[in-house]
Amino acid sequence: MIAAIAEEATQSLILEAKDVHKWYPNGFHALRGANLQVQRGEVVVIMGPSGSGKSTFIRTFNALEDYQKGTIQFDGLPLGNDLRHIEAIRREVGMVYQQFNLFPHLTVLQNLTLAPVLVRGRSRVQAQQRALELLARVGIAEQAGKFPGQLSGGQQQRVAIARSLCMDPRLMLFDEPTSALDPEMVREVLDVMQGLAADGMTMVVVTHEVRFARQVADRVVLMADGEVVEIAPPETFFTNPSHERTRRFLDQIL
């Protein structure tokens, strides 16, 4: 199965961002012609100093941020001003945030079933079944009846991952998923993400976790000043980067 995915990955592009520019209303030029191609089944880790535009970049992939110049295509669909495309892409792209953004007034189970029922039109029973499966998969099936506020940070982030998975996304975006966690909880979240990657999920991950990047990523990207500076497989990226900027960045974090 893995081999099949790998083979397909070489053929099919799922996300393509070309020369993306973004200016914030205050005039700040956040993205300056960023480029990225993601293959199906691939795990791409984006690293870079803070303020380099990593988060902004992946937030453009599901239209949480708009962009003024360039093109983004998801599975052949252009992400522009057509609301039909935006809605379709949001249905197919999952996102996990630094702050979890679970819905605190709903139980864990309700958090997971809300979107499948409202957006996919599934029956409540069907949605709950799938939700419980996914909760079991991220290892917290017994917490289904609790409210997010009753869970630890690591558990909350795992619920957030399961919530995205409930929509059966074709691409998962992770925006610094472990940055808000206490150190002892980082591992449990990374383990879940690693499991996802092993199952063939296409993922774009913004993170500072070097170990995760080394072990899981197919390619590592360095962003600086709103541009993609370097894209390389992890071994090359961490041991023998081709750009001076990457070397400087690695010196600071390693």
């Binding site: 599901n62 949480l64 809605e87 949001r90 249905r91 792209v93 999952g94 996102m95 945030y97 702050q99 953004n101 679970l102 819905f103 605190p104 007034h105 809300l114 979107a115 409202l118 957006v119 996919r120 919530r163 995205s164 929509m167």
Partner: peptide, 24 residues
């Protein structure tokens, strides 16, 4: 982040307001 999470799950603005933001 609440509205953003709702939208990235595919909920429309009205659905996000009705089910996520307004109840809270």
């Amino acid at each position: 982040g609440q509205m953003e999470a709702a939208r990235s799950l595919g909920l429309s603005t009205a659905q996000g307001l009705q089910h996520v933001v307004l109840p809270q």
